[in-house]
């Protein structure tokens, strides 16, 4: 590649980074505007909108509700996903491909269709729309990601370690908890944080399966439909900062654990 194409490509990269980051930066900025009306230019500034977010009982409750859903659905997805990954790794048996295919199915179903299928299924099973219906649909949606990440990590686990433990008399359960699981920890942290972010940010499933209490994205959606206001900017900014911090923390801790494991 010539020098010109290299410069051109770096320009494309920075233009794209700007395209991704600039809207969010402007959104954060707009939360400081001292007026009800969204739009440029910003003439006077205030912190009231941000203070308002933390004073708003409904927003704070919704925030906790979404967090609870994210934690519980991630816990379910991690247990189920790890179980499936362990079952499917290192074994050849009749129907393995079918089970793998069915495991990955939720990842290829368009969002709105999966939400509606769950809505109908919950009705058939007699599950009321609400927290547990949302948790269940988020867990199912996240299982394929956990399975893929954990399987990738499992494929690099040296067989000799498990064999040595078994020779020393450990039963399969002990082997799993003392050999396999510590090795999988970085993968499970990574997959877990990713699942939590997916669940926390999910709109379409929470919207169709939600009861009376909205999750945070559903609340922002409802506020947006009734009109744009700097209040929404402030809520969104708080969400953005928290997800970014969580994401960066997960990325860093995953790499640290991997480095220690490789030593």
């Amino acid at each position: 590649m010539t020098r010109h194409t290299r410069i051109l490509m770096s320009c494309i990269y920075w233009a794209f980074a700007l395209y991704l980051l600039l809207p969010l930066a402007l959104m954060m900025l707009m939360g400081f505007k001292d007026a009800r009306f969204i739009g440029f230019p910003i003439t006077s500034w205030t912190l009231d909108w941000y203070i308002g977010v933390f004073a708003d009982r409904q927003v704070m409750f919704t925030f906790g509700y979404s967090t609870l859903i994210a934690i519980l659905s991630t816990a379910i997805a991690l247990v189920v996903g790890t179980w499936i990954a362990v079952t499917l790794t290192g074994r050849a048996f009749f129907g393995r491909a079918v089970i793998l295919g069915l495991t990955l199915l939720p990842a290829v179903i368009p969002g709105v269709i999966s939400a509606i299928a769950f809505r109908i299924y919950a009705r058939v099973l007699g599950i009321e729309p609400g927290m547990w219906a949302i948790i269940w649909s988020h867990a199912v949606h996240n299982v394929p990601f956990v399975v893929l990440v954990v399987m990738a990590r499992l494929s690099t686990l040296p067989r000799s370690q498990a064999e040595a433990a078994r020779d020393l008399g450990a039963d399969p359960l002990v082997v799993f908890f003392r050999i396999t699981m510590p090795y999988l920890t970085p993968a499970m942290i990574g997959a877990g944080v990713f699942c939590m972010l997916l669940s926390f940010d999910d709109f379409v499933r929470s919207y169709f399966l939600g009861g009376y209490d909205p999750t945070l994205p559903v609340l922002i959606f409802a506020k947006l439909r009734s009109g744009m206001s700097p209040e929404v900017n402030a809520i969104s900014t708080v969400v953005l900062v928290l997800t970014a911090v969580l994401g960066i923390w997960a990325e860093r801790s995953m790499r640290r654990i991997k480095k220690q494991a490789n030593r």
């Binding site: 794209f16 980074a17 991704l20 980051l21 600039l22 809207p23 969010l24 402007l26 959104m27 707009m30 969204i38 972010l197 926390f200 940010d201 999910d202 709109f203 994205p217 922002i220 959606f221 947006l224 744009m228 929404v232 900017n233 969104s236 969400v239 953005l240 997800t243 970014a244 969580l246 994401g247 960066i248």
Partner: peptide
């Protein structure tokens, strides 16, 4: 740098586009 906006949810990002 590109992943951070990606972690932020669908609704927040749609709102950012609306502001632009």
């Amino acid at each position: 740098l590109l992943l951070i906006p990606f972690w932020v949810g669908e609704i927040v990002r749609i709102y950012a586009v609306m502001i632009i």
